[in-house]
Design a binder for these strands. Structure first.
Lengths: 145, 145
DNA sequence: TTTATTTATATCGCACGCGATGTAATAACA
DNA sequence: TGTTATTACATCGCGTGCGATATAAATAAA
């Protein structure tokens, strides 16, 4: 049953490396007082503030039943504001607070630190970036649904 | 702030593709009545039965506080048995039940079906397998803490 | 203009994943 | 041998993820 060995699975390496990368981010995000998914939300909002819940949900490829509680926690932390859109009361628009915007300065240095970390671990950075681009193509295929 | 855009992050693609792959497995695993992490545990045990909790924890790169409840649920489902090792009462040895072993027949076809799925999605299989091997190298570097 | 359908979020329940901590058994050591 | 340290799991608390379902607003249909 060669195809059932763990090292021959396509699933496991992606599953494992995703968690290892999250772990690598953690010490830096801990200093900012945020989690990894919260950081992803901030990345999206730093790029464009005032998005609807659905926009964030689509960009992060997360369901609303994940995003809604995530955003509520971030509102409690005073990182964002949630308010209904005037033109369509079904939509909830997300805006950064002063605090949420202020975190960008500290958050900007995190990706570079991570890259340095990966470099120290004998991970070839060119390969890493090439793989990132390839995976993004796949996400484009798989993500729509 | 170009380095803060979501598409320039190394973290996000790995995070997203991992969840998309898990989603792709789900319909097949649902028929077997198991979850994705439970499938990973079975893969390990099908390869070598009678492992300690720690062995499974190391192979899957998961902490014991994740693995213990996972195994307890699988014991409730009658997929595995948990019993203390006689030579060292701290260890808990995990053995497949008849049911757990029986699932292997159905579980063996899942990886191939997944590969076919990925192929349909314009994902180049050679690239996929090459990437898998490369990620496994990284896991070897990062996994040991 | 009612009624039916669709859309955008939210709620519920459950299974992870993990940091922090606890506990019992074994090993190390004074 | 008695004490201390280490090891192997387990428990607790909390934050995701997600299937199933609910709710309210907007849109389409009758």
């Amino acid at each position: 049953m060669e195809q059932l060995k763990l090292e021959n699975q396509i699933c496991f390496p992606f599953y494992a490396i995703s968690r290892l990368i999250t772990r690598a981010y953690q010490p830096y995000l801990e200093k900012l007082g945020i989690t990894y998914p919260q950081y992803l939300v901030l990345l999206v909002l730093w790029e464009k503030d005032g998005l609807a819940v659905q926009d964030i949900s689509e960009k992060l490829i997360l369901n609303t039943n994940t995003v809604t509680p995530l955003l509520k926690r971030m509102e409690t932390m005073d990182l964002i504001k949630r308010e209904k859109a005037k033109e369509d009361e079904r939509k909830v628009m997300i805006h950064l607070t002063r605090e949420g915007k202020a975190l960008q300065a500290a958050g900007a240095s995190v990706p570079l630190k991570l890259l340095e970390n990966m470099g120290d671990m004998a991970v070839d950075l060119d390969e890493l970036l090439g793989m990132r681009d390839k995976i993004q193509e796949w996400i484009g295929c798989m993500g729509n649904k």
